[in-house]
Nucleic acid binder design. Structure first.
Lengths: 217, 217
DNA sequence: TGGTTTTCAGAACATAAGTTTTATGTTAAG
DNA sequence: CTTAACATAAAACTTATGTTCTGAAAACCA
C-alpha cells in the first residue's frame, strides 16, 4: 500500500473536500469547485496539489475527461459512490453488544465498512454493521462471519428481527420480536426451532436488523 | 412510477448506451460520447433525446455541470455507480435452475438487479443473482427471499458452496461441495445437518455462491 | 545563512462539453 | 392530402473545466 502520512494543511483540506464533495454529490468536483471551497487563489495550486495526491496514491486523474478525479481505496481501486456503513463491532453469544453513537462519529475513523445500497440508506437513515462471531445465531439463519446491518432503535414492531440484549442471561441475540403483554416472545427465524420467552423488562432492544450480508468469496 | 413504455429505436439505443457507459466507466457519458457510440450525426439529436428521456423519468440532467446525466431508479432517485447483477431467476426445491448466458445478455432487459460491491465484481468477474423461493435451502442457512450471488462455473473446489442440480432427483440445491472419488458429498452449511451423497455424474454444478443477501427492510 | 525544494499566485490558454438556431425529413391522425 | 407533432441534421456558439507558464513566497536543510 502507498504510504499515507501527513501532508500540508492545504493539501489535507483539498483531499477531505474531494471526498466530501464526492459522497455528497455523487460526482467528483472540478478544479474550480475545489478552488472556491478551499479558498485557494489559483487553479494552478489546486492542480498542483491534485497532482501530489495522485502521486501519493490517494486519487487517480483522468486527464481526458472533465471531473476526472477518482478516489482510490487502499488497493488503489476506484471507489464507488455507494454509501458505506461502519462495522462497529462484533456480536456473539455471551459478549456484550457494542455501543454505537447515533452521532456521525468522527468520519470513517478506523472502522471497517461495508457498502450498502443507496435505497437501503434512504429507507432507514443511519445504519450500523455488526459482524457476527460464532454460530450461536444459526437459529436466526445467520452464520459465523455474516454481517448484519442494523438500524438503531429502542423499540420494534411485532415480527421484526431485533438485536436484543437479555439482561439476566447477559446474552446478545438476534430474534424476531413479539410483544405479548408483559413478556416478550423471541422467535428464531428458523421456524422449526422453539421461541424464547422473557419478561419485557429483561429485554433491551438495541436495534432492528434490516439487512444481512454473507460473503463467501 | 413513471410509465416506461416503448420508445423510438434510437432513443432506446441511447438509453441503453447511457446505462452501459455509466456502469462501465463509473461516470456518465457526454453528449458526444453518446453521439459517437450511437452513430448519431448531431449532438443536438442526442440533446433532444436526452431531454425526452429526462421528461420520461429515466434520467436527470444537471444543466450546470459537465457529464451531468444521472440515471434514475424506479423511485426517481439517482443510481449509484456500483455494479449491479441481474437476478436471472428463482431457485427453489423441485424447480429447474434458470439458465444464464455467460454472454453479456441483451443489456439490462427487464431483469431485476441488485447492487453489489465493486470489490466483489473485481474479484469474480461476471456474476448472477438468484432469488431463493421457499424454505428448502434452510439447511444452507438461506431463507425464503434471500438472494444468492453466483459465479457461473462448472467446477468447484472442495468446501465451496455451489449451485448444484441433481439430475435424477430433478432438484436444485445449495450445498458445500466435496469431491470424494466418483461420488460427491453435498454438505449443508448448517453443520448439525447430515450431508447428501450422490454419484459424481448425477451432480451438475452450475455455479459457486460467492455472496448472500437478505433484505429484511 | 545560502541554496534547494516545495508550495503558492495570477493570468493566459486549450480543450471538453452543453446549448441554440435554423432547416429538413418522418409519421400518424383527420 | 394536409397538418401538426415528432425526429433528425449541421454548424455555430457559450460555458465549463483542465493545463501551462512564469515568477515569487515559504519551508526545509546543510
Amino acid at each position: 500500500m502507498v504510504s499515507k502520512k501527513k501532508m500540508p494543511p492545504r493539501r489535507q483540506r483539498i483531499w477531505e473536500f474531494v471526498q466530501e464533495f464526492y459522497s455528497e454529490n455523487g460526482i467528483p468536483p472540478t478544479v474550480r469547485d475545489i478552488q472556491k471551497a478551499c479558498e485557494v487563489s489559483s487553479t494552478s495550486v489546486v492542480d498542483y496539489n491534485l497532482e501530489k495526491l495522485s502521486q501519493a496514491g490517494y486519487i487517480n486523474r483522468r486527464r481526458d475527461v472533465a471531473r476526472g478525479i477518482e478516489i482510490l481505496d487502499n488497493d488503489g481501486q476506484p471507489l464507488s459512490n455507494a454509501p458505506r456503513v461502519q462495522i462497529v463491532g462484533a456480536i456473539a453469544a455471551g459478549s456484550p453488544i457494542p455501543v454505537w453513537s447515533t452521532e456521525d462519529s468522527a468520519s470513517s475513523e478506523e472502522f471497517d465498512t461495508v457498502e450498502i445500497s443507496p435505497e437501503l440508506q434512504r429507507k432507514h437513515g443511519k445504519l450500523f454493521g455488526l459482524a457476527v462471531k460464532g454460530t450461536s445465531m444459526i437459529d436466526a439463519l445467520i452464520d459465523d462471519g455474516d454481517v448484519v446491518i442494523v438500524k438503531p432503535t429502542n423499540q420494534a414492531a411485532n415480527g421484526e428481527m431485533v438485536v436484543a440484549w437479555l439482561k439476566q442471561e447477559e446474552e446478545a441475540t438476534l430474534k424476531k420480536f413479539y410483544a405479548e403483554g408483559d413478556r416478550v416472545r423471541l422467535q428464531p427465524a428458523n421456524s422449526t426451532m422453539d421461541p424464547i420467552y422473557s419478561p419485557a423488562d429483561n429485554v433491551e432492544i438495541h436495534g432492528k436488523v434490516v439487512y444481512v450480508i454473507r460473503n463467501l468469496g
